[in-house]
Design a protein around this nucleic acid. Sequence first.
DNA 1: TCGTCCGGCGTTTTT
DNA 2: CGCCGGACGA
Length: 684
Amino acid sequence: MISLSGLNDEQREAAETIEGPVLILAGAGSGKTRTLTYRISYMVDNLAIDPKSILAVSFTNKAAKEMKERVMSLLGKRKAKGTTLATFHSLGLRILKEEIDKLGYHKKFSIYDTSDQLAIIREALNLYNAEKTFKKEVILSKIGVLKNAGISADDFSDSKFFDDEDPYDHAINYVYEVYQEKLKFFNAIDFDDILLLTVKLFDKFPDIAQKYSEKYKYIMIDEYQDTNTLQFNLILHLTKTHNNLCVVGDDDQAIYSFRGADITNILNFEKNFPGAKIVKLEQNYRSISPILELANEVIKENKNRREKTLWSDKKSDSKPLLWSMADTDHEAQVVVEDIVGFQSRGGHLSDIAILYRSNTQAQPIEEQLRLSRVPYEMLGGQKFYEKKEVKDLIAYLMVIRNPDDQISLRRILNIPNRGIGMRTLEKYLEVTEDENISLYQALKEQPNLDPNRRDHIHNFIKIIENFRHKFNNSTLAQSISALVEEINYFAFIEKNYDNAKQVERRRNDITMFIESAERFEKYYKERANLETFIEKLLLQDNQDNNEDEDDDIKKNSVTMMTLHSSKGLEFDTVYLIGIEEELLPHKRVISEGGGTDEERRLCYVGITRAQEKLVMTYCKQRKIYGTDVPRHKSRFIIELGKKGFFLEQDRQSFGHLGSEEEVQDYKKSFFSNLMGLLNEDEKN
DNA sequence: TCGTCCGGCGTTTTT
DNA sequence: CGCCGGACGA
């Protein structure tokens, strides 16, 4: 039996209220994950509820994984088994994998990322209007908005989102329809479809919806303030038969409106789910009070929020710091030096996070960390699978699995070059169009269309077919290596880049890809196959699965991530870099004229990640499009230094290294930087 | 068919 | 500054 005595009164009440709707308003650091994990454990261990009927949904893989680990450590692996702790998208995908044929797709569908989506939109746009009046990125983002609002292509022109006066909307109306048709023809879906189609399925087939609702009798949703209409509809379907819904959220941390998140979902919870019990968690267990005071000061400027009084009893005299830097390189240097100093005093690198508004900020820091030999782990950013070489290989896997996947097929048809170029492709696309068959089918069944290319096409098809068998009969990693060999991909890389370093890097990416398949196999054992591997890749679920040896490495590395992905996490020390105008709040938001409330919340999220030490930085100068531009500290904090909420230090002169200890650290880190540089040179 | 060169362009945030 | 896409030439 799990004891709930470690929870405070409110937390315990939330954990013990199992039946009916519950809203937990949980301020930053108030122990909501703790509450949720105890709630799950309490249900399984004390109430003997079947773990299979418990579903907890969060937004990011990171959060889902964290929840999983904490439930496991509380309940033990054996008892925790069967609970579903998923992200919205992994849940949707799980359902679609079973049911998507009812919507007219085959079960081996592909999932398209942004670049795949853009490729389709470009063609659809050409069909609509040969002139380049409309930008495909704008169209894509609007389609995304529509999908997240639950609006299909047919509904758009009748919806409140459609403006008859706006030529863009007419273009979108056309493109959205063509886009969706093509996706279906390619047997592919995009990210938003994962949820859109799941909801569609439930709308269309109430009996299927009922099946899942009966399966998941107890549902918990984390970060409820960030749910959008589509997700809300999904929740409605799933809770329909029982109404056992427990949501956790904090309106001050709503930061996903760009993805259609609708804050009214949390504000109207009682209305949507009558009889809801509401629990407020207001004690912050995370941060020392000076950090919390700064956070409260920042967020209180926002008008539309539920009043909260977050408090902490962790008193301390050490105030947050604000460092001003000369430029981004200087910023990286100072921050990394500080980290090296911390490390040399015996600190754990895993206690440190570097947070930023935009992924572009990560680059100088990353470089400096490498130079100083500080291990780090970066979340998000350029995704591994988005690298060109990796994408090529994945495209092969996709076509092997789903030959209808025209986007992937076209990507690899002439990679490595095999003499099937644009001209040939166009001929075949015509056939595809005329006979309404897939491109793959056309290639396979009519190799004589272009006699000069016949052999090339034949060989290509043979590779695909052979490897379809190969993947069934040998292990995943073996098959992938064999494929790389078969298509001579390494030779292709060498041919394409004359720069030896580039060749090396790209070869390395391929090796890493194969290694990731090996690790996947090791962890998933007999469940490891092409299907499961691709799914993992596409959900960007890169959270490494290796429980054993890599754990040590992870325990000793700095974490870098955007403010968005930091939500829900906590660190002893946080460097919040680039607290400056046009970055936080972001330029785009300022120029669009809308409020900066969400940016302020983002700032609040960043500050409240820190437990003991918070360092904010800004640069006096920053390179934008290659030229240096003067910068200013963010409006969110500009007045608060004078009021004593943090200490401001100008690091440009290095004049603020006070204690002897710090000076020593500085010297040491300078030396290790130098060594790093030398070693780097040696290598090249 | 394939490589290269040039001009325009845009930088949020995520699954 | 660096990417993408179009144009052009071998």
